[in-house]
Amino acid sequence: MTKGQNVLVGENVVLGENVVLGNNVIIYEGTVIGSNVIIQDNAVIGKQPTRAKASILPDFKTLPPAKIGNGVIVGTSAIIYANAVISDEVFIADLTTIRERVKVGVKSIIGRGVAIENDCTIGMCCKLETNCYITAYSTLGDYVFIAPCVVTTNDNYMGRDKERLDKFKGVTVDTGGRIGANSTILPGKTIHKDGTVAAGSLVSRDVEAEILVVGHPAKELRKVPVSQLLKNQ
C-alpha cells in the first residue's frame, strides 16, 4: 500500500495489493477494498449515513461496510457510503456522492459531481456524466448513458401529504437507454431498451423501446436510427 499524509484507516479494513491512498483519505471500519485501487485526496469511503430529525426515512442501525472492487479509481473528495458495492474497474470522478445500498456495475463511469441517492442499482458499462442526479430507488440497466445535469425524481407529492410515504418510486432506464443533457424524468417513469430522450426534455410518461422523444412534455419524434442501437455498436 502507498499512502499520503493524514490517512485514517479504521479497524478491520481489508486492503488488496497495490492500493494507493492520497492525502487525507478516510476509510471507515470494515470496508473491503480490492487490488490495484486508487483513492485520491480527501475521499471518504464507508461513511455511515446520518438521519435528520425530520427525515421520513426509517431509523436504522449501523449498516454493513462498503465494498470496493479491483481496479477502481475514486476521485478527489468523493464520498462512498456504507453498504455501497462498487464493482471492478469502475471510475468515480471528483466530488461524486454514492449513497448507502447502491450497487455500481463493472466498468461504469461516474462523472464529476454526480449524486446517486440510496437504494439504486447502476448496471455495467454505464456512463453518468457531470452533475447528473440519480434519485433514490432508481434502476439503470447496462450501457445506460446519462448526460450532464439530468435530474431524476421520485416524489409526486413534492414533500407534502403523508400519502406520499408509501409511493416513492424512482426511475428505470433499461439497457442502452440514453438521456440528453438537462432533461428531467418524473417519478416512476421507465425508459425502455434503447429509448432515447433528447436534451432539455421533460419525461412525463414511459419512453418505448428504440424511440426518440423530445419536448415539454416529451413526445415521440421518431425511431432511434438503426446505426445508433446498442446491438450495432
Rank of each mutant, 00 (worst) to 15 (best):
M1I: 13
T2R: 14
V7D: 08
V9E: 05
V13P: 00
V14F: 13
L21Y: 06
Y28I: 07
T31P: 07
S35Y: 14
D41Y: 14
D41I: 08
I45D: 03
Q48H: 08
S55I: 06
I56C: 09
L63W: 01
A66P: 08
I79A: 02
N83Y: 10
S87K: 03
D88V: 01
V90C: 12
V90R: 05
A93P: 08
R99T: 03
R99G: 01
E100I: 00
R101H: 14
V102G: 01
V102D: 02
I109V: 14
I110F: 01
G113Q: 00
V114Q: 00
V114G: 01
N118I: 10
D119W: 06
M124L: 01
L128H: 02
C132E: 03
I134H: 00
T135Q: 05
S138R: 11
G141Y: 09
D142Q: 04
V144T: 13
V144S: 03
I146C: 02
A147E: 11
A147H: 04
P148A: 12
P148F: 09
P148T: 07
C149H: 12
R160G: 06
R164M: 04
R164Q: 05
T172K: 11
G176C: 13
G176T: 09
G177E: 03
N182P: 06
S183G: 11
S183F: 02
I185D: 00
K189T: 14
I191V: 15
K193V: 11
A198W: 10
A199P: 07
V203G: 11
D206A: 06
V207T: 04
E208I: 08
I211K: 14
V213P: 01
H216P: 08
E220Q: 13
E220M: 14
R222M: 11
V226D: 15
L229A: 14
N232R: 06
Q233P: 02
